[in-house]
Every structure is written in C-alpha cells, then in structure tokens.
C-alpha cells in the first residue's frame, strides 16, 4: 500500500483526518473522540496494523498529544503515526488496550507521567511511581525542588 492509498482509505473512514508527510512516516492527526474508531479500522482488514510498537504522549504546553506508532506484522515497511490532541486541563481519551494488549501497560505509564485518563481501561493505576506521588513528572511545568530530575 502506498501512502496515497492509505490516505484515501483513511479519508473514507475518518473524513476529518489531517495528514502530514514531512517526516519519515505518514502522520495522521484526528480528534481525540475519533481516535478509537479509526484505530479499530486500522487494526482490521485490509490495513492490519496489528503491531503497536510505541505509545506515548507529548506535552506542548497548550495541549497534550497522544502519539501511537503502528505497523503491520505482515508488512513491516508500512509505518503509521497516529496522533490525537487532548485537553491539558482535563485530559481524557478512550483506551486502545482492547485492540492492542500492549497498550495496557503503556497507557498506565502515560497516565502517571502525564495525567491522561484512559476511559474503560481495565486497571488504570500507577505503574512506576509511588502511589502517593503528586504531579505529572513528564509535563513541562513539573518542578520538584527535592528530587531534581533536570540536570
């Protein structure tokens, strides 16, 4: 599948998707409430994006962006980057861990590091940090005067 075909296919399912081809891989940005349906479409036939190899979040100070790196186990040369902006004050997005099981732990990490709440996640609690840890360390405005992370 070429990028043009992928774009055509995605536009048919998510007309509002914004494409960006400046980077190495095709970037697709959608609204946060459209992400889950599009993820399910990508996972199914004929795209078969069944391998989620990176799930993370970026803090752009005005908003947070969820970033999903997808590829297909049958054709590892197709790589897609799926993005969705979430509100910084009240970050909520639907979980994708019923589509890709690996997302369960990766979303827990994003939850504690950025404070993004994943709806319908089976076990959303802290993974790496202590239970009573306050704040979201990977956000840009996080400051901890005692345990300084910044060098």
């Amino acid at each position: 599948m070429t990028n043009e075909e992928i774009k055509e296919y995605i536009t048919a399912h998510a007309p509002e998707a914004i494409f960006d081809e400046t980077g190495e891989w095709l970037n697709i940005a959608v609204e946060s409430n459209h992400l889950k349906p599009l993820a399910a479409v990508l996972h199914g036939q004929p795209m078969q994006m069944d391998y989620l190899f990176c799930l993370t979040c970026v803090d752009y100070k005005t908003h947070l962006t969820m970033v999903y790196h997808l590829t297909s186990s049958t054709n590892r040369n197709i790589n897609i980057v799926l993005k969705a902006n979430v509100d910084r004050a009240d970050p909520v997005i639907e979980t994708v861990c019923d589509i890709w099981r690996t997302a369960e732990m990766l979303e827990r990490e994003v939850f504690e590091m950025f404070g993004v709440e994943f709806l319908h996640h089976p076990d959303l609690r802290k993974l790496i940090l202590e239970e009573d840890f306050k704040g979201y360390p990977l956000r840009k405005d996080f400051e901890d005067p005692i345990n300084m992370i910044k060098l």
Binding site: L127, I128, L129, E130, P137, L138, I149, K150, L151
Partner: peptide, 13 residues
C-alpha cells in the same frame, strides 16, 4: 516497577 526508575526521559530533555 520503579525501584530503579531514574526518569531518563526527563533527564534527556
């Protein structure tokens, strides 16, 4: 997890 967490990602920033 977290017994040897050093927040390498934040450090790298």
């Amino acid at each position: 997890l977290g017994y040897i967490h050093r927040s390498i990602e934040k450090m790298c920033e």
